[in-house]
Design a protein around this nucleic acid. Structure first.
Lengths: 189, 189
DNA sequence: CCATTTGCCTAAACGACTTAGGCAAATTAG
DNA sequence: CTAATTTGCCTAAGTCGTTTAGGCAAATGG
């Protein structure tokens, strides 16, 4: 019986790909075992539980997304940075819907703190530097941007825009423009 | 053997309460059966499946939330209406976290169309009347508000604000103010 | 009061998760 | 190179939630 070459790493990547194909909720140790043509119990040498697997996929996705967002805003500022950041998020969600869902998994505080999640907040603050918002307005703005981008992406993914004949890309651009204007209007207050 | 008085209605309401206590994902026909001290199979005379139960809870929650939002904006306009609408959503999510999660269940298009979901969009449009936005800007604004409010609520519920010492209520008020200003700035374009 | 419908039951099967314990392949040490 | 150890995958078995089929008794209504 040749070995299958499993590891937490390999399973996490395969799980992420599976998530993109069938949805994050449908990722299951049983299905993963099928893909590797291996018995289910064998996976338990590599991941502690089904939940552990999902957390690993979430951490992978958070890191990938932060990398992508970081690359996007490198060398940009102001409106350019904001648009690139927004595009990084939306693009990732479109290309990797399952992984994007994974980033919404509720992590316990310690895990969240050790994840790429704080980096996401830092990247948002980096963009906001160009808008010169004093605290606590900067924190308010971090929350606004995080919420607005994520909320839009989720509504779009849920098909919430299907019954209105307005191009979601056009709405997205309008929203980015508007948020840019909002932040400029809020500068120094 | 006295009868337990089950019905789809009763199970849906009990399911909604259970969701608020343990989370929508944890709502299970088995757990509901336990609460009614009844065998699991008995529930299947009233709901078609576990998924059917969840859809019913989602529809109930969407309707409750639309009612609440509708009441909130009645007799108000402009910033007042926007703030009341926002407060209705956030208040519902805080008081009924499980039901709020239920409103995010992905419904198939026909079910969604027959649900209170379109009413939510209509309520948002009612608020926007006070801002005199031409199409397609009004549609963009519906999407912005829907996304921003929902995204904020979800980030807050996920504990995303726990590590920054800024009152979430203060951020919320700042965001509502800012969106009001944004919409006024966008009037007639 | 008898017939029908309705409500909850028992029984049984399925699928995902998880643990315990074993054998064989891979790795390391003498 | 072989022996000892570790590692990887296996079988077996139990748990839990879901779902269907078929039965009996309570409620309903002519």
């Amino acid at each position: 019986m040749a070995r299958a070459g499993l590891s937490a790493e390999v399973l996490t990547r395969a799980g992420a790909e599976l998530a993109d194909r069938v949805g994050f909720e449908q990722v299951t140790v049983t299905e993963l075992a099928r893909r590797f043509d291996v018995k289910v119990a064998s996976l338990y040498s590599h991941v502690k539980s089904s939940q552990d697997l999902k957390v690993r996929i979430a951490l992978l996705s958070l890191a990938e997304l932060a990398d992508r967002a970081g690359d996007a805003i490198a060398g940009r500022a102001g409106r350019d940075a904001l648009a690139a950041f927004a595009e990084a998020y939306r693009g990732y969600a479109r290309e990797h819907p399952g992984r994007y869902q994974a980033t919404r998994l509720r992590l316990d505080p310690e895990t969240a703190a050790a994840s790429a999640a704080p980096r996401h907040a830092q990247l948002t603050r980096a963009i906001l530097r160009g808008y010169h918002l004093p605290e606590p307005a900067q924190t308010h703005a971090v929350r606004l941007l995080g919420g607005a981008f994520h909320g839009y992406i989720e509504l779009e993914a849920a098909g919430g825009f299907a019954h209105t004949p307005v191009d979601p890309q056009e709405s997205w651009d309008w929203i980015v423009d508007s948020l840019d204007a909002l932040l400029r209007a809020r500068a120094d207050n």
